[in-house]
Simulated scan of single mutants.
Amino acid sequence: MRTPNAPNLTRRLRRAAALGLLAAGLLPLPGLAEKADRFKPLNVEADQPGRIDLLKQFVEFNGNVVVTKGTMTIRASRIEVRETPDGYHTAVAFGTAGKPATFRQKRDGVDEYIEGEAERLEYDGRTDTIRFVTNAAVRRTRGSGTADEITGNLVTYDGVTEVFSVSGGAAATPANPGGRVRAVLAPREGTAAAAEAASAASAAVPALRTSPSLGTPR
């Protein structure tokens, strides 16, 4: 892919900066084709003015920053976006231990999402991968529930192959005092195991019973 010329890049960066100045940090979540996300334009909005370096093709946004690319959404307090010489975008989103950066993207062909958070997110548009760095937690959600969850110091998600990799060394927390890598995996939807698990969960819910009627007050 050829490198965009300077006037076109300038117009795009100015338009992005204007969004950062004028928007309130809110951007609707698109519902388009999931695997086509990597070919969608990358949009950035923020509460505060950004910093633009045309020579280095670098933009920094601060304050309730929202990055979208198709169904993918990243939210953070600060995000740095770069355009590589071959036209792909990279983004680094910064959060804190108290308010991590977050990620959400619809899975292809199913009503499921990949969601996660960490103190830093690193997105690579060329490979369509995202790294969750420091106190990372990544989930596959189905409806309002969590199907799978992975926690560790570093979780990498490949959006093309839908493969995760995880490494330990996470800081100890009350919920995870040993800082170990953890994974909770549920049966895949549509399988016999998933149907049996749903049936067992329904059977475990006690049936509602009517209470005795109250006596007539004297």
Rank of each mutant, 00 (worst) to 15 (best):
R78Y: 06
P28D: 09
D148A: 11
E196R: 12
T3N: 08
G20R: 00
A137L: 13
M1P: 11
N43R: 13
R38Y: 08
F58R: 13
Y113S: 03
R120I: 13
R12I: 08
A203H: 00
Y113L: 05
N64I: 06
T156M: 07
R120A: 09
Y113P: 02
R182Y: 03
E117Q: 11
A16W: 01
D124P: 08
V110L: 03
L27P: 04
G178W: 02
E119H: 03
T68A: 15
G87S: 06
A93E: 06
N8Q: 07
G159K: 07
G143N: 11
R78E: 13
T173D: 10
R82S: 15
A192P: 08
I114A: 07
T68N: 08
A186V: 07
Y113T: 04
L42R: 02
R182N: 11
T3G: 06
Y157Q: 01
S167V: 15
R104P: 04
R209K: 12
S144C: 03
A76F: 12
G50Y: 01
L26A: 11
Q48I: 05
A33C: 05
K40T: 07
A186E: 09
Q48D: 12
L26I: 10
M72W: 00
D128C: 03
D111L: 02
L208A: 14
K35T: 11
T191N: 13
S211M: 13
D53A: 00
I74R: 02
V110H: 01
G152V: 00
R11I: 09
A172N: 09
A197F: 05
R209H: 13
E34W: 08
T173H: 06
D124C: 10
P217C: 05
F61E: 05
A203T: 02
F103I: 04
L185F: 05
T73K: 15
G98E: 08
T84W: 10
E189W: 03
L185Y: 09
